[in-house]
């Protein structure tokens, strides 16, 4: 099975079309990749995670309970906002190249969320290269990609309700999503990783779990 086949092989048939809207007004959607990520990490003792989104206390508690892990927080959404507001987006790739101080192959799991959709091509490639560098062999990276391009200027906080459900809470962003990435573009971005699982959810989100092979991908 080729990489493109893996990306399009599974369709989320169980998910409802409309989100479950909770009493708090926060929509909740099913997730399938999160459970896969967790199962890939539970076999590791004292795993190290990297979260590229804002700090969410309940997510921290969830991962602490499930994995007893160490989590690095690098809120790249906030950094992106900073560069957009300063009008210095052309400097963002250089910054992302220096930002991650973690050693090579030192992180077991990366929560990339939907960050890559907000970056321009050069920044996305630098980020993907850095994440590939710090991911351990057999480590996993979770990323979300939309199949449509919403025009609103919002980011989303992905709040873990349980291992099968995520609450999507939006908050203001300085820029919107830049483009809908095709499967081949996603694979090219993470040339050093292979697609382990891919789920096309009915809320138009592709959940992709990458795995770093123990051998080098060429």
């Amino acid at each position: 099975m080729g990489l493109l086949d893996r990306l399009s092989a599974r369709r989320d048939t169980d998910a409802p079309v409309a989100p479950v809207v909770l009493d708090t007004g926060v929509p909740q959607f099913p997730t399938k990749a999160l459970r896969k990520l967790l199962s890939s990490l539970t076999s590791r003792e004292a795993p190290v995670l990297l979260d590229l989104g804002p700090v969410i206390g309940s997510n921290l508690s969830f991962f602490g309970e499930q994995l007893g892990c160490k989590i690095f927080y690098e809120d790249i959404y906030a950094e992106l906002d900073r560069y957009v507001k300063a009008g210095t987006l052309d400097e963002l790739p250089g910054y992302l190249g220096r930002r991650f101080t973690q050693a090579d192959a030192s992180v077991d799991g990366i929560l990339c969320w939907d960050l890559l959709e907000y970056l321009d091509k050069a920044s996305a490639q630098v980020l993907a290269d850095q994440l590939t560098r710090i991911l351990r062999p057999e480590g996993s990276l979770l990323a979300f990609f939309s199949t449509i391009q919403p025009r609103d200027l919002t980011y989303t906080k992905f709040i873990i309700a349980d291992e099968s459900n995520l609450k999507y809470r939006t908050y203001p962003a300085a820029r919107g999503r830049q483009a809908v990435l095709a499967n081949r573009d996603i694979i090219r971005l993470f040339a050093g990783l292979r697609v382990s699982d891919s789920f096309l959810m009915k809320n138009n989100v592709r959940e992709i779990l990458f795995r770093k092979p123990s051998y080098e991908v060429r």
Binding site: F63, G68, C69, K70, I71, F72, Y73
Partner: peptide, 10 residues
């Protein structure tokens, strides 16, 4: 709350 860094709950 503002937080920047890592959390070790090993």
């Amino acid at each position: 709350a503002h937080f920047r860094g890592s959390v070790d709950m090993q």
